[in-house]
């Protein structure tokens, strides 16, 4: 027999005129190795069929299940219930993003807007001949690009960010990291001036106040601080 745990969830459906935001408590038995994914799936199938949350890969790879767990933004699927000593867990939807229902928020629309804003793709001038040898890249440079390409757009950096919570249009660490990623990619032909055009304002790189909650909560442990600082130095000089 596992211990009993209590999961408290803020439930609200903004599209339903009858719905009012309320906290609902669920009590269930903990099983060995239980994650919040397992716990919420259990609640959905046996206690409250109406509870809504988003899970896709349930392995910390896709970034769908960010939520506030006892106040901290994190991926629910990677959170073990055994980490909470008292067995009391409070779940809230990620702030900053549009609430869909209960724990489900629209990170997709936010990320799309961000991607379009920073032109989140390789810009290049010439066509690649696919039958010919690929362009050579220094192994260390490829590794460095990969390091920044590991971002999974979970939105946790945005939901951790005090700037983002106050200023709707702030591009967030995810956007700044994305720009840094393309700026060091040898396939991309954009210059610092080009990047300045994308993020050279107070909604971009100069809006960041370096509060570091992005880096401290990033489930992928991306080195956001040094990359944002790198972009800031480059763009102030450019």
């Amino acid at each position: 027999m596992g211990r009993e745990i209590t999961i408290k969830v803020l439930k609200y459906n903004p599209t339903d005129s009858q719905s009012t935001p309320t906290f609902v408590e669920y009590t269930l038995e903990e099983t060995p190795g239980m994650t919040l994914y397992i716990a919420l799936t259990k609640i959905k199938s046996s206690i409250d069929h109406d509870l809504t949350s988003d899970f896709v890969c349930r392995a910390g790879i896709c970034g769908a299940c960010g939520m506030l767990v006892n106040g901290k933004p994190q991926l629910a699927c990677r959170t073990l219930t055994s980490d909470f000593e008292g067995g009391k867990i409070e779940l809230l939807p990620l702030p900053t993003f549009k609430l869909i229902k209960d724990l489900s928020v629209d990170t997709g629309a936010w990320m799309e807007k961000m991607s379009l804003r920073v032109h989140s793709w390789i810009e290049k001038h010439e066509e690649t001949d696919l039958a010919k040898l690929e362009k050579r890249v220094e192994p260390a440079v490829a590794d460095e690009v990969f390091e920044l390409d590991r971002c999974i757009e979970c939105g946790i950096c945005v939901a951790s960010c005090s700037t983002a919570i106050m200023r709707e249009d702030f591009v967030g660490a995810v956007g700044l990291n994305r720009v840094a990623r393309f700026s060091i990619d040898p396939h991309d032909t954009r210059t610092d001036e080009d990047f300045y055009e994308l993020i050279g304002d107070d909604d971009g790189i100069f809006g960041c106040m370096s509060l570091m909650a992005c880096e401290d909560h990033c489930p992928k442990n991306l080195s956001l601080q040094s990359k944002i600082a790198y972009m800031r130095r480059k763009l102030v000089m450019s």
Binding site: S162, M166, L211, A213
Partner: peptide, 21 residues
């Protein structure tokens, strides 16, 4: 509204650097 959002968020998170701000 901005102040309230910031404060609630910071209190929930309990994150040192954010509190420092």
């Amino acid at each position: 509204r901005e102040y309230q959002r910031f404060r609630t968020h910071a209190k929930l998170m309990g994150h040192q650097d954010t509190n420092l701000w």
